[in-house]
Design a binder for these strands. Structure first.
Lengths: 102, 102
DNA sequence: GGCGGGCGCTACAGAAAATGTAGTAACGGA
DNA sequence: TCCGTTACTACATTTTCTGTAGCGCCCGCC
């Protein structure tokens, strides 16, 4: 099975990353894993997407080494994933400001 | 025409924001506007998406007050959009690190 | 005056992706 | 043996995206 990089032919890391994060539910999944590991169904219920898509996105995130499955606790962010999340945390505060401005 | 908030029923700003940014091409468009305003066709060529979708996403970004159209220079980030971009800039450096790790 | 080129944007048919529902297979405990 | 829980898959329907063509507008040019 051949993998294609959507959205960019360059393969530049920033483009690959923007493309990955720009897929539906991906940001949301990372966000929901910010505090504690989640089980597959738990995650699915939290975000309200179909299992097909949750499974697909988790597979992509695992391949990107941002998420891993721990048999005991469930899906969780890897060290790399936590780093990425840290970059996103300011979004939370900013979104409140943005909501007021719109 | 009724607007529905995809991906979340709560309407919490962070969810609305994650949903907006999680739409295909949205992050990419914001990224391509990081340095200078871009014309519609220019933007379209840069990211390689169909005009239908570029137009749709630009409409959403304009409604979210992150992007505006200046008749003289083209599409550009608003003050709010620039703030958001600033939060995303560390992604660039991080993506390089991430690319090495995967 | 009317032609060409650039502008934002739209129409539409076909292709791809997401949804919603059901179900599989594996394990562990009562 | 049956029940519950786990991750995950199948598949028909619906939604979204793509690719291509073209519209209407304005401006400069001859």
């Amino acid at each position: 099975m051949v993998k294609r990089v959507r959205g960019s032919r360059t393969g530049r890391p920033i483009m690959v990353l923007l493309d990955l994060l720009g897929r539906r539910w991906v940001l949301r999944i990372v966000w929901e894993l910010r505090e504690e590991p989640r089980r597959f169904r738990e995650l699915q219920d939290l975000i309200g997407a179909s299992p097909t898509i949750v499974n697909g996105r988790l597979a992509e995130l695992r391949e990107a080494k941002l998420v891993e499955l721990d048999a005991d606790s469930g899906y969780r962010l890897t060290a790399l994933g936590k780093e990425l999340l840290r970059l996103f945390l300011p979004l939370h505060a900013w979104s409140e400001k943005w909501a007021k401005a719109t």
